[in-house]
Amino acid sequence: METPIRPWLASTAAAVVVSLGLAAGPAGAQQQANTLDLIKQRGNLNCGVNTGLAGFAAPDSQGVWRGLDVDLCRAVAAALFGDATKVRYVPTTAQQRFTALQSGEVDILSRNTTWTLSRDTSLGLDFSGINFYDGQGFMVKRELGLKSAKELDGATVCVQPGTTTELNLTDWFRANNIRFTPVVIERLEEVNAAFFSGRCDALTTDVSGLASVRSTQGANAEQFVILPEVISKEPLGPAVRQGDPRWADLVRWAHFAMVEAEELGLTSANIDQHMQSANPSIQRFVGAAGELGQMLTVDAKWAYNIIKQVGNYGESFARNVTPLGIQRGPNELWTKGGLMYAPPMR
């Protein structure tokens, strides 16, 4: 009759795990000082992505991952191995994502994660760039004829509870001294359904979310407008474990390379023709001059590989995010009035 002991042990172990977990918390984060070597040795990149978010990371009909966040992982793999396909995607849920990074299950978390001070400091991770600037906005029916969110006085607003979205909403309306009635609904589909069935005057969530909800309305999309006010900052970017600057540098510069390429006019289609370019910036970029690759401890043609296999930031955006009906907006290059800015690559 010893057998029942084992399950008991298991449950005790589980209980111990829980109590330790509460005590240790995120401080139990493990640090790997040599992620770069580890990945090279392993031969593929472990990339934590969303379990499914249109435009950012979602498998297509053939099970191939596509999206803006996915392209970032492919870019890092292209820089490291010269092969953008050497990525193992680990779908992570909102709750699991930081554990997956802390425990070393993934090397990079590229999962539409908002960069905030508390996350950067207390979770044992480092954000290494912003690949999408998002923010909270409002969508209303066109027939209401509203031009600004400040005209929403007395409106009912559909919102999901328990997120920063709800807090931002209250803060903003209070700050602008406008009355409103929130309609709080737990599930995303139901919030959207409530809005489209006319239960509330306005729907609020991140602008990218609003645009994608609007695009699912097909021919009806014209009946809805997204108001110009963006009431919160949601900078989304990749994160890596804290304490490994070399690895964080590579991720950071893989993203910057995509932005820089767009600025230089290099695309996956034309980069081969620019290999002999006389422009010193392009020469450094494609690895014909300078030692940028060596400084990052990767191949000299690392940036060339990124652009050839993945494309520049604009291409990735057009391929993944534009079909959702989202404009470049703040994600436009700085030269065109946006926020996408890469430090000089030299």
Binding site: A14, V17, A24, G28, Q30, Q95, Q96, T99, A100, G104
Partner: peptide
Amino acid sequence: FMASVMFPLFLPEGMN
């Protein structure tokens, strides 16, 4: 949830 979120934190480094 415990199996997927808590448990991995207590395994030795590199072991998954």
